[in-house]
Design a protein around this nucleic acid. Structure first.
Lengths: 168, 168
DNA sequence: GTTACCGTTTACGTCTACGTCAACTATTTT
DNA sequence: AAAATAGTTGACGTAGACGTAAACGGTAAC
């Protein structure tokens, strides 16, 4: 049995670390993608020799990247957010600008939420309508079957079962 | 004054119609994009001579296309939705399949909504934190000002007002 | 020692969603 | 008649986000 230790080496950076493969598996992205995010300035893992080592902060960022992508943000936008966040520590000038950017982002998200809710409403309608159509079909099918039952011919009694498979 | 009539010609298709330019202006997209959506099979305007004429259905679809895009769907996905919708009229087999696709889509949207809400929450936190930092800055600034006021020099008495504008 | 596995760099390929000319037609305005 | 305006069909270009293949290094397992 191999030790469950996370194979950290090299006077151990204190704290948990991850290899690129671990992160890729955990978040279901390719290592290629993760390296690409680094090229684009979104991640900055530590190097141990030539290998990359990712720390809690990197993992958190990767999570944010992927969530951002699911919401349709470009990598450039995500990078901008990171940079802003990193730089918004000091002067009221900076802080005010940051606030305005956040406000803009909020507007975007709220619009998107409206789009989303509307789409969900329409989807529910389609769903209901579809179920209604299906119910009608079932009724008709049942009626046909009854009609067949009321005038039993000498045909094979499994005919009804066969008829079910006609919809195949 | 030109007549407000929508310049329809050619034994008039009954109902409202739009030129490509009108739609482009209304939805703030380029005509190039609209033509591209047609190439991709998402729109099918009527032709009058060589010109395209868009009807209510096309307009509705364009709206859906753009909303879909804002939610991060690809044109291929949007086209699939349209096709499914168009073909889901008949057999229970088809209807059941359509229902399953709708269910899948719902899952996707719900996940996206969760992402969105979480992002909005974090954004609000950032916003609040940022405002707090700003308030601290203001306080410090005010204190500095008071300190200056408690040992009044022979400077211009409007100094305080001027200092307000420093935050500009 | 060699096979397997994980990781690295470099570089070209690909798919999506258009942008950007160019060259032409039809209509309206001056 | 000339110019402006709106539309049309190619055809090529491009930005973003990786995929894919080549060629190599390190280490653990057999």
């Amino acid at each position: 049995m191999s030790e469950p230790q996370p194979t950290i080496r090299e006077h151990d950076l204190n704290g948990t670390t991850y290899t690129i493969g671990e992160l890729a598996k955990e978040f279901d992205v390719t290592t290629r993608a993760i390296r690409f995010y680094e090229d684009e300035g979104l991640l900055s893992p530590v190097r141990i020799g030539s290998k990359r080592l990712y720390r809690r902060r990197d993992r958190a960022r990767l999570k944010l990247i992927l969530r951002g992508k699911r919401l349709g943000f470009t990598l450039a936008e995500i990078r901008e957010t990171f940079n802003l966040y990193d730089e918004a520590h000091g002067e009221s000038q900076q802080l005010r600008y940051y606030l305005s950017v956040l406000e803009e982002k909020r507007q975007h998200l709220i619009r998107q939420r409206a789009d989303l809710e509307e789409t969900l409403r329409e989807l529910d309608q389609s769903y209901a309508h579809c179920e209604q159509l299906l119910a009608q079909q079932e009724q008709r099918k049942a009626k046909d079957q009854n009609a067949a039952a009321r005038r039993p011919t000498r045909r094979d009694p499994t005919a009804a079962t066969q008829q079910d498979s006609v919809a195949n």
